[in-house]
């Protein structure tokens, strides 16, 4: 009789403590869960840009050259300096295209870190 009551003693105690701990974990988990889901969804979306990446570089590059050439063409038309402004601005457009592509590449690389950074940022925001 005395023995059984002794062994019964610590069991519900430990059980209560375990349950309390798992509850604490679940409470902390529930707070984070939604944000993590969002962040990971965004991250995945950003990761998938494989083919679109090539298209983006092309568009950035071509757009700058077209704009450069177009402005040069306009200046030539206005000032009658054909073809010099167009040549100069085509070169500038080429440079701008390279700049665009470099920026797009840097942006894409940053996006990966932004994806992780933004998740922590979101956590911070909600703590406030």
């Amino acid at each position: 009789m005395a023995n059984s009551s002794h062994s019964d003693g610590p069991d519900p105690e430990r059980e209560a403590r375990d349950r309390s701990r798992s509850l604490a974990e679940r409470i902390a988990g529930a707070r984070r869960e939604t944000m993590v889901a969002e962040a990971s969804a965004e991250f995945r979306q950003r990761e998938m840009t494989g083919m679109g990446r090539a298209f983006r570089f092309a568009a950035e590059f071509v757009a700058a050259i077209i704009v450069g050439a177009g402005i040069g063409y306009g200046i030539d038309l206005l000032l009658g300096t054909r073809p010099w402004a167009m040549i100069v601005l085509l070169l500038l457009g080429f440079a701008a295209g390279v700049l665009n592509v470099m920026r797009a590449a840097a942006e894409m690389n940053a996006d990966v870190s932004v994806g992780t950074a933004s998740s922590s940022q979101v956590l911070d925001d909600d703590d406030d």
Partner: peptide, 27 residues
């Protein structure tokens, strides 16, 4: 709602912890 529920749950949990602690102390 979630925040308040979680806060409530956390409060309850702390109370449980306190009770367990008090029980242990008494024991």
């Amino acid at each position: 709602r979630i925040e308040s529920d979680l806060a409530e749950a956390d409060r309850m949990r702390q109370r449980t912890d306190q009770a367990v602690e008090a029980y242990e102390k008494e024991l």
